[in-house]
Structures are given as structure tokens and as C-alpha cells.
């Protein structure tokens, strides 16, 4: 009846310690609560139908795919395009509905782990997408191609950051060593993110041609969007710096490998993680991975730029043909 892509970001139950699960439940519930209030203020009576139908659209839209090669395919996940079209708070709500229904009805992601999954896909996804999109569109000002480049970057970065958060949650829970989980999740999602970015750009190009108004070009941003941009950028920065550090300091998460009862492990997690991470002796591998991250970001940026130029050329040719 339904299809939902097998995607390595839905953490099942059993993989996160109860403490980590509860902490992320609290985070997510607070953010979603704020989202409910904000969208209720801006949308009023329209909130229920608009959010409900769009949540169904994103859920079903995850069936949309294109073949890459050898049986693999690119999928739409939707947080970025939702954040671009609807703004961050509505996107949080829409993604929350999608992720929650996937967990409860399709066992795509656990129930206890739902808080963490919501945090990765329904909080980080929209927040980071919105922050990247806002900052880049400001940078590119009135360039049309800049819009698409920003959309691609928003989708790619948000997927990567969400996957890093997922990897660190696994590492803190002692399920997967950080030096394995972070690079593995990161690399897979650098590729998945390209698919997401391309679909997002395609969707934006379609809407640009048909309903330009939906992309809010040149409109004044709502007053509270600055906070979202700052928080989204902070989340992205912290995770981008923390994850290479964690993965190059597997000793810092040594308690992971030791045989603890759960309660010991959970306690240790919170006492140990601070001395190891507030002032870590920044060793060469850490710097190396951070630099690798920066280089990677630049490469993606260049790709995004190239795609933007290609879109622009395409648009010019279409104009010429008319």
C-alpha cells in the first residue's frame, strides 16, 4: 500500500540508550510546541488543512525517485523544499507528522527513538535548510541562479548535518563507535544529499516557472526568522566541528566499548563527555578532518555553483528560443 524509502537515518529502538532518547524527546517536544504556536499565529484557521495536506504530500512524495545507477536511486526527503516554501516552523510541523507516522505505522524508526529521529529530521532538517538558504540567498542577492544554488546547498548541508547528529547519537549511546559511525553516515549522506539537492532544485525550477510567488523571492522575511537562522547555523557549525573531533578521538568515547550496565554507561556518558570535549587537545587528525570537511564543503559549493550556472544557461537558451 505505502512505500517509504529504506533510509539509513531512521534509528530503530534498541540503538539509543534510554537517557539519550529521553533527552532528545524533550528537545524535540519543546521545538515542535513552539512550532505549533508560531504556525497557529501566522496561519490561523488555515493551519490544520495546509499542514495536514502538505504532510501527506511530503510523505507520499518520498516515493518520487530517479535511478542513479546499478539499482540505487535518489529520493526526496523533503525537509529543505518544505522549509523553502513554507518557512521553518511550518516545515518542522510537516516533517514531524511525516516522521511520526512513519514510526508508529510503518516501524520506520523506533518509538522510544522517535524523539531523536524527530530531532534529526524534523528539527535539524528544516532549521539548517532554512539557515543555509537564507544566508546564501542574501549573499547572491537578486541572481536567479543564486536561488537554485542556495536551494541545492540547503538540501545537501541539512542532510549531512542531520546524519552527523544521528551518528553522534549512536556513538553517545555506545552503539556504534564514533570513528566508524561518523565517517560512514557522513559519506553515505554526502551522496544521498546530492540526490536530495538535485530534486529540490528541480522542484524550485518548476515552481519558479509556474508559481514564482510561492518561492517568496525578495519578500521581507518574517521578524522571527533571524533566530531560526542563527540557531540553524549554530547547529550546523557545532555538529560539523564536533563530529570530526569525536571520530578522531575514539578514546574519548572509550566507555562505549567497556562493559557497563546501562545506568553506569548513561552516567559516564554525561560526566565523561565534558572533560573530553570542552578543551580537547586538538590533535592533528582532528584538524585534518575539519580541514577535510571544509574542503568538502567548498567542493560542494563549487558543484552547486556550476549547477546554478547551468540552470542559468538553460534559462537563457529557453528565452532565446522563444
Amino acid at each position: 500500500m505505502f512505500f517509504s524509502p529504506l533510509h539509513p537515518m531512521h534509528i530503530p529502538d534498541g540503538f539509543l540508550s534510554v537517557l539519550v532518547s529521553i533527552v532528545f524527546w524533550v528537545f524535540s517536544v519543546v521545538v515542535i510546541g513552539i512550532g505549533l504556536r508560531k504556525t497557529s499565529q501566522t496561519l490561523g484557521e488555515r493551519q490544520v488543512p495546509l499542514m495536514g495536506v502538505l504532510a501527506a504530500a511530503i510523505f507520499a512524495g518520498q516515493m518520487l525517485n530517479f535511478s542513479v545507477s546499478g539499482g540505487t536511486s535518489g529520493h526526496l526527503l523533503g525537509a529543505a523544499i518544505a522549509a523553502i516554501l513554507l518557512g521553518p516552523w511550518s516545515a518542522v510541523l510537516v516533517m514531524t507528522c511525516v516522521v511520526a507516522v512513519q514510526a508508529v505505522l510503518f516501524q520506520d524508526g523506533g518509538i522510544l527513538a522517535l524523539g531523536a529521529n524527530l530531532f534529526n529530521m524534523a528539527v535539524i532538517g528544516p532549521f539548517v535548510s532554512y539557515a543555509v538558504y537564507s544566508l546564501l540567498t542574501k549573499l547572491f542577492k537578486k541572481q536567479t541562479w543564486g536561488l537554485f544554488v542556495s536551494g541545492f546547498a540547503a538540501a545537501w548541508v541539512s542532510i549531512l548535518i542531520a546524519s552527523l547528529s544521528c551518528a553522534l547519537q549512536l556513538a553517545i549511546s555506545g552503539t556504534s563507535p564514533a570513528n566508524v559511525a561518523v565517517p560512514a553516515m557522513g559519506l553515505i549522506h554526502m551522496l544521498i544529499g546530492v540526490g536530495e539537492g538535485l530534486i529540490t532544485v528541480g522542484a524550485m525550477a518548476f515552481l519558479y516557472a509556474t508559481r514564482k510567488d510561492l518561492l517568496h523571492i525578495g519578500e521581507a522575511k518574517p521578524a522571527d526568522s533571524k533566530g531560526v537562522v542563527i540557531v540553524g547555523s549554530l547547529i550546523a557549525l557545532i555538529l560539523a566541528i564536533l563530529s570530526p573531533l569525536a571520530s578522531s578521538h575514539p578514546d574519548g568515547l572509550e566507555w562505549v566499548a567497556e562493559e557497563h550496565g546501562f545506568i553506569d554507561a548513561a552516567k559516564d556518558a554525561f560526566y565523561n563527555i565534558i572533560p573530553d570535549y570542552t578543551m580537547p587537545g586538538i590533535s592533528n587528525p582532528a584538524i585534518a578532518t575539519i580541514i577535510a570537511g571544509i574542503v568538502g564543503s567548498i567542493v560542494v559549493f563549487v558543484i552547486a555553483y556550476a549547477i546554478g550556472r547551468a540552470e542559468k544557461r538553460g534559462a537563457v537558451q529557453e528565452d532565446a528560443q522563444r
Binding site: G61, L64, L76, I199, V201, G202, A203, A205
Partner: peptide, 9 residues
């Protein structure tokens, strides 16, 4: 990818 994106849009 662009066709799929168009469909999503």
C-alpha cells in the same frame, strides 16, 4: 533528477 524534481514541485 530534474524531471523528478519537477514532479515533486
Amino acid at each position: 533528477a530534474r524531471v523528478t524534481g519537477g514532479m515533486a514541485g
